[in-house]
Measured scan of single mutants.
Amino acid sequence: MQRVNMIMAESPGLITICLLGYLLSAECTVFLDHENANKILNRPKRYNSGKLEEFVQGNLERECMEEKCSFEEAREVFENTERTTEFWKQYVDGDQCESNPCLNGGSCKDDINSYECWCPFGFEGKNCELDVTCNIKNGRCEQFCKNSADNKVVCSCTEGYRLAENQKSCEPAVPFPCGRVSVSQTSKLTRAETVFPDVDYVNSTEAETILDNITQSTQSFNDFTRVVGGEDAKPGQFPWQVVLNGKVDAFCGGSIVNEKWIVTAAHCVETGVKITVVAGEHNIEETEHTEQKRNVIRIIPHHNYNAAINKYNHDIALLELDEPLVLNSYVTPICIADKEYTNIFLKFGSGYVSGWGRVFHKGRSALVLQYLRVPLVDRATCLRSTKFTIYNNMFCAGFHEGGRDSCQGDSGGPHVTEVEGTSFLTGIISWGEECAMKGKYGIYTKVSRYVNWIKEKTKLT
């Protein structure tokens, strides 16, 4: 034993070699072989497995989906700052455009905790909710729209109204504003409101030439003092309507412009014939205590009207009353817009006519005020429907199939267009061939041609 100890002390290297040989010859039971080890760690190889990531292109799944990435790591994937920024906006807080917040056709661009709407022409605001041009839906104005110097929408209202708090709607500024039905039992019968379409306001006024200088022999019209197929109006439903009495009662109609003036057809009036105007009328054979009678003290036909040349060209006249009318729910003026808007309103496509005229061709006159909704007829169809001249200051309205029309005794009465609950004068009943005849239409004086003249002559002093 002493000898062994001496050998170990003198030859430590020998001992180490012996131990190493023993270990190498022993069977290893701690580690699995290569094949079995792979069965336990069965993990798919990654895209760049075996390579240094710093030297390969980034992978979106590896960089940002398996674990949260930084902007720089995302930049490695896209290799483009702009594309990385677009991805980053949604990656950080989701897609803010998912709810489609942009209105009126706006395009949404996502941002971090926010979004941006790219608005089409005519709109602005956070969600493109603000109209900035009158060309689109009248700028959301209830009545009139004008573009300011910086191309912003400025709404306005006709006389007797003021802008509401929203700067879009119009509200009454006087007790009985024009064009409004205020009798409670008839307010439910107000005709369907007309909503502004998209309009090209630059070209809204037709490029028409008034044929002022045409000389033409007097034409022989049949029954051209021209509501057939209409309905009984309720008291106060058309408070701007008046009836004219002269040699015979209810020979023509008219509309209240203001307390002192009536507008009617020029062919209705004769110099030297006494005319009485009755406002607030409903049943011409009954006294309903809503009527107001006034005498006409002055007749002003349009300066281009000449019955000797043509009885229905420039067929418009103004009547001055001896005493002002007292405005109330049964006696209310009709609204008159400017030339541009009167023309736009007419193009809405349908209007209402009213009167006490004959209820059928050569038949009896109506006792109760009649009204009828009539569609506008395109000019080409209008011209083809008659052998008589249709001037540019006239328009056609009615039904091709016949059966409904204005008729004798309705002449001078109103053709009105309702705009968001307020009625505007767009025409004056003038003439036609018979009444409600198939293929024939009622012919009306186009008020847009005469609004400046009306307003100039009827100013209240």
Results as ranks from 00 to 15, higher is better:
F388L: 14
C170G: 01
E66F: 04
S423W: 15
W240T: 01
N48W: 08
E281H: 13
I428C: 01
E53W: 04
T461R: 09
A164M: 10
F399C: 07
M6T: 13
N104E: 01
H314Y: 09
V377L: 09
G355P: 05
E116T: 11
L244F: 05
E159F: 06
V359N: 13
C102Q: 00
I214K: 12
Q241L: 14
V202C: 05
G403R: 05
G122E: 07
N452M: 07
S49C: 04
R358H: 13
C69Q: 03
D95K: 08
Y444N: 00
N36P: 15
G125W: 00
K274D: 12
T218A: 07
V56F: 06
T386P: 04
A250S: 11
G432V: 09
C268Q: 01
K440A: 09
V181K: 07
L19G: 02
F71S: 14
N100C: 04
K274A: 09
I297T: 08
D95A: 05
V451D: 01
N213M: 10
L14G: 04
I15K: 06
S423K: 12
V277P: 00
T133C: 03
E193M: 14
C178S: 00
V154G: 05
R373M: 08
P12K: 11
C102S: 01
N104G: 02
C97K: 01
N304D: 11
E165K: 13
F388C: 06
L372M: 13
F55E: 13
G125M: 00
T287Y: 10
F388I: 14
E285I: 11
P172R: 06
K89G: 15
I17D: 02
Y341F: 08
D322V: 03
C117S: 01
L24T: 05
Y312V: 08
V202I: 12
C145R: 00
K39C: 03
G253I: 09
I390P: 09
E323I: 09
V353S: 06
L367G: 14
G105L: 03
R364G: 09
T85P: 15
L367S: 12
L321N: 00
Y22C: 11
G421C: 02
S114V: 05
W88C: 05
G439A: 06
G246T: 07
G272K: 09
R364M: 10
Q57R: 13
T158R: 01
F395M: 01
A380M: 07
V181A: 11
P172N: 05
D249F: 05
K234F: 14
Y352R: 06
L32D: 15
R404C: 12
K387I: 04
G122M: 04
F31W: 13
S385Y: 14
W88H: 15
G13R: 07
S49Q: 15
T386L: 09
I262A: 03
F424D: 01
E259Y: 04
Q370W: 03
G403C: 07
L318W: 00
N135A: 12
D93M: 05
F348A: 14
C335V: 00
R46D: 07
D93G: 06
A308F: 09
E66L: 04
G432R: 14
T271Q: 10
I336A: 01
L32V: 14
E124W: 08
T16R: 10
E434M: 12
C252S: 00
Y115S: 01
A37T: 15
Q96G: 08
R83G: 15
M8Y: 13
A337C: 03
C18N: 03
Q143E: 00
L383Q: 14
K311G: 05
Q167P: 03
F224P: 14
E401K: 14
N343A: 07
Q57A: 10
D232V: 06
N42L: 08
S448Q: 05
D338P: 11
E98L: 10
T458I: 07
V273G: 09
E193S: 12
K146A: 11
S99F: 05
I15M: 10
P414I: 12
V331M: 01
A397H: 02
A436H: 13
D232E: 13
G236K: 07
N222F: 10
P172V: 07
L369S: 13
R3Y: 09
K260M: 06
L60V: 15
V153K: 05
R298N: 12
C335F: 00
H289L: 07
S114I: 04
T458E: 01
D249R: 09
G50K: 13
P177F: 00
N203P: 10
V419M: 09
K137L: 08
N283Y: 09
G179M: 01
L130V: 12
P197G: 09
G351L: 01
V447S: 03
P172H: 05
E73G: 15
C102L: 00
T186W: 07
V174S: 09
K168T: 05
K260T: 02
N213E: 09
G421Y: 04
A380T: 12
G439Y: 06
C128L: 01
G421Q: 09
V227M: 10
N38Y: 14
K339V: 09
Y341T: 08
E433A: 14
V154W: 08
V269A: 09
P414T: 08
I17W: 12
V368G: 11
N452L: 05
A266L: 02
L163F: 00
R379W: 10
N222P: 08
K234E: 12
R83E: 05
V181T: 11
T190R: 08
E456Y: 10
R373E: 07
V416Y: 10
N127C: 02
F424Y: 10
R43M: 14
I300T: 04
N104Y: 02
A366R: 08
L367F: 12
Y441W: 04
T85H: 05
